[in-house]
């Protein structure tokens, strides 16, 4: 349904003295999503997860330049096509209730989303009723303002915004942090349901555990690039390919709880070779000379020359 290859996002900034500066925040990013599947995108902050969502929706700031190709249903996603598809075929589930207008009733806002997706007013209203009923939100919730919702209700309202559009691709941006464990499970189940209905779901998160509960595949981002795409079961069976993914997995509390030393390279000073080379135990001259290509390995994908079959 969606395939992204070699996506690059570069910001042009002006330094002191009007010196132009190029910030490569995303380089060589690859991802593919099929209908009916949940693909989790995991990575630390600054790894380009949210920017990927913004690029897909065409809501990057004006000083951003795109390179590489994004295809949706086989056709290239140009900025114009992004604008035409967003809110109709591609929908975003935002991070928090802060993404709703504080001065508009939630019913009004969800109805507006339905209308933007191309429904007539009455039909939109009916679809809001249906969706709210599906998520156990009573009719009175429609007249409430965002500040009057509980955490769980807020999540269900946000999921409703994607459901009323009948979008085929749903991007959930960090839907779980700061929530009660029950609400996390509930939210994840709602996302899984969306995939069962035949939609493609991209789950953007830094919480690997949450991702593994519902994802079919996991794409690991590092400093704006895809280092590995693995099946969810590969994590538990130890079938991981990239040293960063392995280190990330080891750093979880229930595993060895060993932190990954060092930091992601800054987009101002990206290394010439592999982006992970300065933190990698396997590093060799080939790694620092040029960027490795993404290659298929053990029915997954990895961007590392040393990973063995």
């Amino acid at each position: 349904m969606l395939s992204i290859s070699n996506l690059g996002v570069t910001f042009t900034q002006y330094d002191q003295g009007l010196r132009r500066k190029q910030l490569a925040v995303i380089t060589d990013l690859d991802l593919d999503v099929k209908a009916g599947e949940v693909v989790a995108v995991v990575g630390a902050s600054g790894s380009g997860k949210s920017l990927l969502a913004h690029a897909l929706l065409g809501i990057l700031p004006e000083n951003a330049a795109l390179s590489g190709t994004m295809r949706f249903k086989g056709e290239i996603l140009t900025p114009e096509r992004c604008r035409a598809l967003r809110g109709k075929t591609i929908a975003l589930i935002p991070q928090s209730i802060g993404y709703l207008d504080p001065l508009m009733t939630v019913g009004g806002q969800v109805q507006r989303v339905a209308q933007l997706a191309g429904r007539a007013k009455a039909e939109a209203s009916a679809s809001v009723s249906k969706t709210f009923a599906r998520y156990n939100l009573s009719e009175t919730v429609r007249d409430r303002y965002p500040f009057q919702l509980s955490g769980g209700m807020a999540r269900r309202v946000l999921v409703s915004t994607a459901v009323v559009t009948q979008a085929q691709l749903v991007i959930a941006d960090e839907p779980t942090p700061g929530l009660h464990p029950d609400v996390v499970v509930e939210t994840l189940n709602h996302l899984r349901e969306l995939a069962v209905e035949g939609r493609g779901v991209i789950l953007i998160t830094h919480d690997i555990e949450a991702a593994l509960q519902i994802a079919d595949r996991v794409a690991v981002f590092y400093a704006g690039t895809t280092v590995e795409i693995a099946a969810a079961k590969d994590f538990l069976s130890g079938n991981l390919r990239h040293p960063y993914t392995q280190a990330l997995w080891r750093s979880l509390p229930q595993n060895e709880f060993i932190p990954v030393p060092g930091n992601q390279p800054s987009p101002e000073q990206l290394p010439v070779g592999c982006l992970f080379s300065d933190r990698c135990d396997w590093v060799s001259e080939t790694c620092t000379a040029e960027r490795p290509q993404l290659r298929e390995l053990r029915s997954g994908w990895v961007r590392c020359v040393h990973a063995k079959g």
């Binding site: 967003r86 809110g87 935002p94 993404y99 207008d101 508009m104 989303v113 933007l116």
Partner: peptide, 25 residues
């Protein structure tokens, strides 16, 4: 603001963003 970013993601145009979200705020 975040809510305007979300409105853009829903395909709302600039003047409709002002009409529905900007004006009241």
């Amino acid at each position: 603001s975040d809510y305007v970013l979300f409105a853009q993601a829903q395909g709302e145009s600039l003047w409709n963003i002002i009409r529905y979200h900007g004006f009241r705020n």
